[in-house]
């Protein structure tokens, strides 16, 4: 049976949150009346961090987000990915039968495992996946130590 997204960590409150959103919608609150949805149970975008010998790779899943709507910044050893996932244009004219994708602002802060060289960071958005490559600073790279006999 196909599973829904991001069930690697089990969220015990996801069904309650879903019910709360449905009630809010019935009562005329929540998106599009004011507050934005918490996308995916509140943790968005999902992130993978890979730590290599010379650089750190961070992958974020941001399908449907345009490159202009992303705001990526680095402060020290912290990477912050912020942005907004816009809804459908002309929403009022549409009748929704099913609405599973969330929209709204998102922000995720990732503490990097090592010191990086902020001037050489590259970010690419391809097929809805943002890949940020952060080269490590000289001091953080592994160095071989020769043993003197």
């Amino acid at each position: 049976m196909a599973r829904l997204r991001w069930q690697g960590w089990w969220d015990p409150f996801s069904s309650l949150r879903y019910m709360q959103r449905e009630f809010e919608r019935l009562l005329g609150r929540g998106f599009p009346f004011g507050e934005s949805h918490a996308i995916g149970g509140g943790v968005y975008p999902p992130v993978n961090v890979f730590n290599g010998p010379n650089d750190i790779l961070v992958q974020c899943e941001v399908a449907g987000v345009k490159p202009d709507d992303l705001d990526i910044s680095i402060t020290g050893e912290t990477l912050m990915v912020k942005g907004v996932k816009k809804g459908h244009p002309d929403e009022e004219k549409l009748t929704f039968q099913r609405r599973e994708r969330g929209m709204g602002e998102f922000s995720r802060t990732i503490i990097l495992p090592d010191k990086i060289d902020a001037d050489r960071v590259e970010a690419k958005l391809n097929l809805g996946v943002l890949t940020v490559r952060l080269p490590k600073s000289e001091a953080a790279r592994p160095r071989q130590i020769k043993v003197n006999a």
Partner: peptide, 10 residues
Amino acid sequence: DYAETYADFS
């Protein structure tokens, strides 16, 4: 040679 530090999605 990349270690997986944190994985939210596979």
